[in-house]
């Protein structure tokens, strides 16, 4: 069943167009990976799907569960089942992780929190201030935890494999696999390093993003070519001439 459809999506940051003419269909339980170098527009694309005010849609539409949500605010999108694991998270001194987690659980209900808590090994972080003084791995694991306890239909994961050690990377991949297989969560995951890819079980499609456009889509082999040869050289091998 089709969950998300992006039709000719253009995204602006200030006066600048940072995402151009993106078409993307994501069905329930699918895992889409968007690969691209820094500055390709990956984070802006996820921000636009989430409805964050730091970007605005300046063309095209976002359809979620057959409804046009292009003008719907972020909190309403979250309530409809879209969640974003941010790449950059704010540290809030004085506010404990457990408080935020409790509010999220109260809002979304459901079960499976304990499993995710164990998989991501974040129980020991509950008494600390939100993201304050966290290591890279702790930050990524906790943000993924706070995202998945929303029990989203669609989880947008922004660089979950960036700046983490191998142990955290394994736990993050395990949690993503758990959400897909146990809850049929759909995933759109962006990464520039691709370190997590060989640990994910169910990758549906890999998209290469460059200069704000999705320039190529294929299976996991596409990622292997690009990651081994670099974006420009890899795309040439795939027969794509970036604009």
């Amino acid at each position: 069943m089709l969950l998300l459809r992006l039709k000719g999506l253009n995204v602006c940051a200030g006066d600048r167009i940072v995402v151009r003419d993106v078409d993307l269909d994501v069905s329930c339980g699918e895992v889409h990976v968007i690969l691209g170098p820094n500055g390709a527009g990956k984070t802006s694309l996820l921000s636009a799907i989430m409805g964050l005010p730091r970007v605005r849609v300046c063309g095209g539409t976002i359809i979620f569960e057959s409804e046009d949500i292009t003008g719907v605010p972020a909190y309403e999108r979250a309530r409809r089942g879209i969640a974003l694991a941010h790449q950059f998270v704010p540290s809030i001194r004085g506010v404990k992780v457990a408080d935020i987690a409790r509010h999220i659980v109260e809002r979304y209900g459901g079960d499976g929190y304990e499993d995710i808590l164990d998989i991501l090994d974040v129980k020991n972080l509950m008494g600390r201030y939100l993201f304050y003084g966290f290591s890279g791995g702790e930050r990524r694991r906790l943000e993924l935890y706070l995202t998945l306890i929303q029990r989203p239909k669609l989880a947008l994961l922004d660089e979950p494999d960036s700046g983490v050690d191998v142990d955290s990377l394994r736990l993050i991949a395990e949690a993503v696999n758990y959400a897909v297989r146990s809850w049929n969560t759909s995933i759109v995951l962006v990464t520039h390093l691709g370190a997590i890819l060989d640990k994910l079980y169910d990758i549906t499609r890999v998209h290469i993003m460059l200069g704000g456009r999705i320039v190529y889509s294929g299976d996991l082999d596409v990622a292997k070519v690009v990651l081994s040869k670099g974006y420009i050289e890899g795309l040439k091998i795939l027969g794509v001439t970036p604009q």
Partner: peptide, 9 residues
């Protein structure tokens, strides 16, 4: 904005 993205006004 962070908390809005988690579903809060």
């Amino acid at each position: 904005e962070y908390l809005e993205s988690k579903g809060f006004t």
